[in-house]
Design a protein around this nucleic acid. Structure first.
Length: 159
DNA sequence: GCCAACGTTGGC
DNA sequence: GCCAACGTTGGC
């Protein structure tokens, strides 16, 4: 099983929006970056991912989702009226894919980007690197466990 | 709203 | 294939 991190702008789709979905499942559409797409393709059923809120008041990890459907064509790329339309992608030869994710749980608190930047064990996480814009990225097992460990700590207590 | 960093496009 | 211009991301 692999671990990932998925970014979403809460103004567009937040973890609370996911919680309100009937089965708490949502297709993760709209990825239009090749490296991020390749990570989507690598995802397998039951992989776990952090749900990250970006471009908002307090950017950070707010929950955990699991992959319940592996990569399949993103139909929003085929729709000329859709915000994420891409004429390069056709149903015959789709360029962009999505996975379906299921809400596992919200975290007890937001693990903020600020505190993750202060933690040496997370120094190699692409998220904390300057200028990192990847919206889908891998998280290794050690980083995953470390971040989960932060959940029970006060946000201001830096070891 | 600003702007740095990054990815993509397209002229040459 | 180079690289300038442009659009987007996303923290601040």
């Amino acid at each position: 099983m692999n671990y990932w991190l998925l970014k979403s702008e809460p103004k567009t789709f937040s973890i609370d929006d996911l919680a309100l979905r009937a089965a708490q499942i949502e297709p993760w559409d709209g990825v239009r970056n090749y490296q991020a797409r390749n990570y989507l393709r690598a995802m397998q059923i039951n992989d776990q991912a952090f749900f990250y809120h970006s471009n908002c008041g307090v950017p950070g990890i707010v929950g955990i989702v699991s992959v319940v459907r592996e990569a399949y064509p993103d139909p929003t790329a085929f729709d000329p009226n859709h915000h994420h339309y891409d004429p390069k992608s056709t149903p015959e030869r789709p360029t962009w894919v999505m996975v379906d994710v299921l809400l596992q749980r919200k975290l007890a608190r937001t693990i903020t980007l600020t505190e993750m930047k202060q933690r040496a064990p997370l120094a190699d996480l692409p998220l904390v690197k300057k200028g990192a814009r990847l919206s889908v990225m891998p998280v290794n097992a050690a980083q995953w466990a470390f971040i989960l460990g932060l959940e029970q700590q006060c946000a201001s207590s830096v070891a």
